[in-house]
Design a protein around this nucleic acid. Structure first.
Length: 140
DNA sequence: GCCAACGTTGGC
DNA sequence: GCCAACGTTGGC
């Protein structure tokens, strides 16, 4: 099982939208590094859902339900999409500020590579972020 | 709204 | 193949 963090601008596609749709298609990635990360995702991998631009916080947990396939938003076969389902909405979202202030999270790409939209997380980083949030919230 | 970071493009 | 110009992302 692998762990990831994926960014979305909430006024384009928010975690609440994913909850409404039950299954969401994660497409539109136009960056090779992010694309390679999408290709590495396996069914059952856990994905933290981060809101960029507005909110600047991790708001929920999603799970990969479909591995990479041709991105439906383009005919260009360089790009792929995956599908996610919501697992849990965090009761207390974890802000970028908090992440930056947590020394054990200092190496996650969110901080140094702020433009990367899909990035891998170590299991302990994933768990630390969940620990910073509280339990409860959306329950599949 | 601005600007820094950084990826991509295109001329040479 | 290099590098300047340009476009986009995303934090502030």
């Amino acid at each position: 099982m692998n762990y990831w963090l994926a960014k979305s601008e909430p006024d384009v596609y928010s975690f609440d939208t994913l909850i409404e749709e039950k299954i969401g298609t994660w497409d539109g990635v136009r960056n090779y590094q992010a694309r390679n990360n999408l290709k590495s995702m396996k069914i059952g991998d856990q994905v933290l859902f981060y809101h960029s631009n507005i909110g600047l916080e991790v708001v929920g947990i999603a799970e990969v339900v479909k591995e990479h396939f041709q991105d439906p938003s383009t005919d260009d076969d360089r790009w792929v999409a995956i599908q996610l389902k919501p697992i849990k909405k965090l009761n207390k979202s974890v802000t970028l500020k908090t992440i930056k202030a947590t020394p054990t999270l200092g190496n996650i790409p969110l901080i140094k590579h702020s433009r990367l939209s899909v990035m891998p997380l170590l299991q302990e980083e994933f768990e630390i972020i969940l620990h910073l949030a509280e339990e409860e919230g959306y329950d599949g």
